[in-house]
Measured scan of single mutants.
Amino acid sequence: TLKVHYKYTVVMKTQPGLPYSQVRDMVSKKLELRLEHTKLSYRPRDSNELVPLSEDSMKDAWGQVKNYCLTLWCE
């Protein structure tokens, strides 16, 4: 499951381990945003700071799954 905080919160079913490009595509379609305006980030467990997502950091983000849910933020 993927939970995304935006102006409102959406929850989507997804497969764990998807690459950033696929996750961003899913989120942009769900929120009806243009792909270039979809910026995603996540919060590591040991931090209060949001970390921007990229293809490289997506593996780390999937490591933050809690209760089968990855929580992301969209700007």
Rank of each mutant, 00 (worst) to 15 (best):
S54H: 11
G63Q: 10
C74L: 02
L31F: 06
E32I: 04
E55K: 00
K66S: 13
K66I: 04
L2H: 07
V27M: 07
C74A: 14
M58P: 00
Q22W: 03
G63I: 10
T38R: 01
V27C: 02
P19M: 04
V23C: 06
N67V: 00
S54G: 11
M26W: 00
T9E: 04
S21T: 11
R34G: 12
D60I: 04
L72H: 05
Q22V: 14
K39F: 09
S21L: 08
Q64C: 12
T38C: 14
Y8Q: 12
Y6A: 06
K29Y: 06
S41M: 15
M26E: 07
K39A: 11
L33S: 02
G17H: 14
E32W: 00
R45L: 14
D25F: 06
Y20I: 04
P16Q: 13
L33H: 03
T14L: 10
W73C: 08
A61D: 07
M26A: 11
P16T: 13
L31G: 00
D25T: 07
S47H: 09
S21V: 12
S28Q: 05
V10R: 00
L35G: 15
S47T: 12
E49Y: 10
V10A: 09
Y20M: 01
S41G: 03
P44D: 14
G63P: 00
N48S: 13
K29H: 14
Q15N: 09
L53E: 01
D46E: 12
M12I: 15
T9L: 04
P16M: 12
C69Q: 14
R43H: 05
V4D: 08
S54M: 03
Y6S: 08
K13T: 09
L2V: 08
S57G: 09
L50F: 10
A61K: 04
K59S: 14
V23K: 03
A61R: 01
V27R: 03
Q22N: 06
A61Q: 08
E49R: 11
V65C: 13
K30L: 01
V4E: 01
A61E: 09
E36L: 04
L35V: 15
T9M: 02
L18T: 11
R45W: 12
D60T: 05
D56G: 10
Y42H: 06
Y20W: 01
V51S: 03
E49H: 08
L40R: 02
S47Q: 11
P16G: 08
W62G: 01
S41Q: 08
D56L: 05
R45N: 10
Q64S: 15
V4G: 01
Q15H: 13
A61S: 03
V23G: 02
K39L: 12
V51P: 10
V10H: 02
S41Y: 15
S21K: 12
T14Y: 14
L33M: 08
D56M: 09
C69R: 02
S41T: 01
Q15T: 11
K30N: 03
D25Q: 10
W73R: 03
K3S: 00
V11W: 07
T14A: 13
S54L: 00
E49V: 14
L72I: 09
T38Q: 11
L50P: 09
L53M: 02
K59T: 10
Y68T: 15
Y68S: 15
S41V: 00
G17Q: 05
K3Y: 12
C69I: 09
L2R: 01
L50V: 05
K13G: 06
W62M: 01
Y8K: 13
Y20G: 04
D56W: 03
R34Q: 15
M58R: 00
Y20Q: 08
V65S: 14
V10L: 07
P52S: 06
E55D: 12
L33T: 02
E55C: 05
P44S: 14
K59L: 10
E55P: 10
T38H: 03
H5G: 02
L53H: 10
C69T: 15
S28M: 03
C74S: 06
L33N: 06
R43V: 10
Y20C: 02
L2Y: 08
D25E: 15
C69K: 00
L40W: 02
K29T: 03
E32Q: 13
M58I: 10
G63E: 11
Y68I: 01
Y8E: 14
T14E: 04
C74N: 04
K59P: 14
Q15M: 09
K39D: 02
C69H: 06
M26H: 05
N48C: 14
D56K: 13
T1I: 08
P16L: 14
Q22F: 00
Q64A: 12
Y20V: 00
L72G: 00
Q64W: 05
V51F: 07
Y20P: 00
K3C: 02
D46T: 07
P19S: 13
K39R: 12
T71Q: 11
R45P: 10
Y8F: 07
V10S: 04
L40C: 02
L31T: 00
E36F: 02
G63T: 08
S47R: 11
P44C: 14
K3E: 07
R43F: 05
Q15E: 14
P19N: 12
Y20K: 11
Y68K: 15
L33R: 03
D46R: 05
S54P: 02
Y42L: 01
P19I: 09
Y8A: 08
A61P: 02
V11E: 13
P44F: 06
G63S: 13
L31E: 01
T9I: 02
K59G: 13
N48E: 15
M26L: 11
A61V: 02
C69L: 08
H5D: 07
E32Y: 08
G17E: 09
Q15G: 05
